[in-house]
Amino acid sequence: MGINFKKETFRDDYSFKNSPEQVRRFPFPFHEDGYMYSVNIEPHVGGRTGTVFEHLFDVDEHYVSEMQDRAMVLAEDPLRCQSLPHMTLAGWDTLELLMTEKAKSYPEHFSLTRDGDKWHWINRPLGIDDHFTFGDTSTLPYGPLEYITRQSQGDFAVLDQRDNNLWMDAGIVTTQADWSLDFDIGMNFFEWHAPVPLAHELGIFTRALKFLMAMQQGQPARRLNWTMTINPRLDTSPENFHKWGTDRATVTPENVGQKVHLRVEVQMFFRLPRSNALLFPIRCYLIKMDELVSSAKWGRRFHRVLRDLPDELAEYKGLVRYRPTVVEWLSKRDDGKPTSSGYGPD
């Protein structure tokens, strides 16, 4: 069964919306009626049908439109994709992983034929049919990382592992929650996490780094993170803050349902085999408040999470300005009943 790819926009007229089926599979990130940081890492294994975790790399109805949005961002700002010279091998690792998994998970949309280092890649939704030599960058229109991530939803950071640390030495970042690859490129794990409040004191980054450095091939892991976005804009970057920052002052009780989005990131971690680098895909999912409250449980729970969120976290996530309006709107959809445990929509 093929995916019904939608034609929609993430800028200007913002025609993005989720189908009811897509709402049901939304990766709602709260398993209880409250939220605090944790190193909530779990094995990234596929298999749960009807969820975004069915395949290692989820392709959904927004695929084609998201890739068009990425191409627009890159055309305006090529520095959104960077790879330091020693990371080319990790780029090939990434290309192999994404092509292999996509062809395996969605054979009706993607095909990969390998004959030694002569590869043939077909991407039907984007109309791509390319022959190239694996390992030879001159046979591709872009570097290996950019080539394959222009065809893959979500941002990708590629982390070099050396000197007992991880280094942000390559990536493509166009669907981000207000961080910049161009700013972070070359930084180590502690440097790029420096702005995050509270977590350093909790020792979370030291433990997380230890875990990530021990990540093994064939045993990927994932965690969820979340924030909120006004208008369904994928590119909420510091570079373009002037285009979206003021949107945060436009929330009114009347437009919460359509304008305010919960933004969930499925963050994954893969050890790459040739380069020994760590691939960190960050896949962004958006859902409108109107769509969210179509699940009574999600509506109740998100109201309680947002209402009780510590101020430091609200500040860091950039929600302070519109939080009261959204909490007030959600409170009218929370009848106070208990919520069932777990993430599902009931």
Partner: peptide
């Protein structure tokens, strides 16, 4: 086991 690398080349 799957391969594990604790002695990798520094590709820089």
């Amino acid at each position: 086991s799957n391969p594990v690398n604790l002695f990798s080349l520094d590709l820089r």
